[in-house]
């Protein structure tokens, strides 16, 4: 697509430049007091050069939009990695508990989805080789996905200006053969998976006193919650995605599930962004 556009741009630039130079030479002033020939504007010509660019640009629009749709819809089965940006480093959390800083190892051929948030200001994950880029916002989750096809080391940049060491907030995506990737994984820290870390935290924060598997608890049942539609007290419905779980931990009274009292205290300031991700992953793992 890029090169199609380059061709269009080159064609029109050369057309205009060519005409200008041609006219400028052909109709150069031949006598000091000569004036131009009166040429009356043609409505047909005007409409033609309004409509033709319009059509061309609409073709580009549809093409660009379809590329964008493909980009914003990850496939069903993805390998999820959580990303937390902070001034001025990238923290990656793999589902099985592996943690990395400024370096992300992924196997070749798998669709990888990054679920990203920021601890402080706006950052932006940009991997030029994979043609992906998305802002990383504090207080929200954004996603990108890519499917690496060739092993190698690829640049990862922060593409949203974030302060003094912005240009140092870079890293590498290391794409490995699946076997190498397994070897790399097994060499990592034996901390246990992200979900199990979340489970431990869930117990430490005493969440499990109210959120119990049985239906008659004081808090809503979390088993099988993720991805379902929740009916709220106000009668509205929301989909229980990452953002909803995050909000329910930090600001529980904002969206209370129907049939429950707003008695949960806020955990604002008590859990870090990384711990939030562990809790979310734990809730996701409850099937």
């Amino acid at each position: 697509m890029y090169f199609f556009l380059v061709a269009i741009a080159a064609f029109f630039s050369l057309l205009i430049a060519g005409l200008i130079v041609y006219y400028a030479v052909k109709y150069r002033r031949r006598a000091p007091d000569a004036v131009g020939t009166v040429v009356h504007g043609g409505i047909v010509l005007e409409i033609a050069w309004t409509v033709i660019p319009l059509l061309i640009s609409m073709v580009i629009f549809v093409w660009g939009a379809s590329v964008f749709f493909a980009m914003s819809r990850p496939p069903e089965e993805t390998m999820n990695v959580y990303v937390v940006g902070k001034q001025w480093m990238w923290k990656f959390q793999h589902l099985d508990g592996e943690r990395e800083i400024n370096e992300l190892h992924v196997p070749v051929g798998r669709a990888v989805k990054l679920i990203m948030t920021s601890e402080d200001v706006i950052h932006d994950v940009f991997v030029p080789a994979f043609r992906v880029k998305a802002d990383v916002l504090p207080g929200r989750y954004t996603h990108i996905w890519f499917q690496p096809t060739k092993p190698g080391r690829y640049h990862l940049f922060c593409a949203e200006y974030c302060g003094t060491r912005h240009s140092g907030m870079i890293g590498e995506v290391v794409v490995m053969e699946p076997s190498d990737y397994q070897a790399w994984l097994s060499g990592g820290a034996p901390e246990g998976s992200l979900a199990s870390a979340g489970e431990k935290l869930f117990a430490d924060l005493a969440c499990n006193t109210c959120h119990r598997p049985e239906a008659q608890s004081r808090g809503p049942v979390l088993q099988g919650l993720f991805g379902k539609t929740v009916t709220l007290q106000t009668g509205e419905t929301v989909v229980a995605d990452e953002a909803y779980i995050r909000e329910s931990i930090l600001n529980p009274s904002a969206k209370v599930t129907a049939g429950f009292q707003p008695i949960m205290p806020t955990f604002q300031g008590l859990v870090s962004e990384e711990q939030l991700l562990e809790l979310i992953e734990y809730v996701k793992s409850l099937r």
Binding site: M1, L5, A9, I60, F61, R131, V132, K133
Partner: peptide, 13 residues
């Protein structure tokens, strides 16, 4: 036009 094409903008913005 490259930048208005949203799919391409993602890469070059």
């Amino acid at each position: 036009l490259f930048l208005a094409a949203v799919g391409l903008d993602v890469h070059v913005t």
